[in-house]
């Protein structure tokens, strides 16, 4: 176990724990935007900044990437930390004035107005979609293109992707609802990724419910009985509840 102090409070954590988690253990709330339990930390949004005291020097670092060390002294509410975090959020708000999550954070931090020219982007470039698609789905459909202020998340050559399975994990992890997915009868349309996928219909109810490609991908990855891929979740649930009788599951 490692012992450290955050805002003067002592906490012991296992080796490999991030400062963010150590703080959570103490009930200290640190805002995050580009962090998600399921994927590797990235350190991009910088709203989770904390101050770490190292001897006579102190430096700002991101708590989501910084690993706890023995004897470490962390400040999560110093004026320097709060000023920096606030400016990060203000910068992101100027970029994406309509993003609910950013607006929420801004409200919580007491940011009243934006001092910069407003843009109308939706993506804060947190990279969660990229990491989910790469690390969890293992499809690596999207990535960053361009440098600096022109950075964007895109498919290669900004063209239709032939590796996208249409699972929509990117969209569900996106903190700003920047990834648009539409369903039209037998098609799932991932506008943001210039990609359309054919859906498969449920053997029982006939409803189109999942991209064929996603099913193929799943079959490759996990061994499951063939018919599990043939019926939609609703019908699956119904038939299961039927079978199990009283037991109410709903978690399957």
């Amino acid at each position: 176990m490692l012992n450290l102090t955050i805002d003067g409070k002592k906490v012991s954590v296992e080796k490999g724990t991030t400062v963010l988690h150590a703080a959570r253990k103490l009930g200290i709330e640190i805002p995050t935007l580009c962090y998600h339990e399921g994927v590797s930390p990235y350190g991009a949004c910088r709203v989770c900044l904390v101050e770490v005291v190292k001897g006579i020097k102190t430096g700002l670092t991101t708590s989501c990437t910084c690993l706890a060390e023995e004897g470490m002294e962390v400040k999560s509410d110093s004026p320097r930390v709060l000023e920096s975090r606030k400016l990060m959020v203000e910068l992101l708000l100027a970029r994406c004035p309509e993003a609910e999550k950013v607006k929420d954070l801004a409200r919580k931090m007491g940011i009243e107005g934006v001092r910069f020219k407003r843009e109308d982007k939706e993506c804060i470039l947190c990279g969660l979609c990229v990491r989910v698609c790469q690390e969890i789905i293992e499809a690596s459909v999207i990535g960053f293109i361009n440098r600096g202020a022109n950075r964007e998340v895109e498919t290669p050559f900004q063209a239709q992707s032939d590796v996208c399975i249409g699972c929509g994990a990117c969209s569900s992890v996106c903190p700003t609802e920047a990834i648009k997915i539409k369903e039209m009868f037998d098609k799932r349309i991932l506008e943001t990724w210039h990609t359309e996928l054919e859906l498969k219909s449920c053997k029982i109810c006939g409803r189109y419910f999942v991209p064929k490609k996603e099913l193929e991908h799943l079959k490759e990855k996990i061994e499951l009985p063939e018919d599990i891929f043939e019926i939609c979740t609703d019908c699956k649930r119904k038939s299961l509840t039927g079978k199990i009788g009283e037991i109410k599951t709903g978690a399957i």
Binding site: A44, V47, M88, L91, L92, G148, A149
Partner: peptide
């Protein structure tokens, strides 16, 4: 132009 664009302070 040369910022990689990854992090908020540098890019924005």
């Amino acid at each position: 132009d040369e910022s990689c664009g990854k992090c908020t302070p540098c890019r924005e």
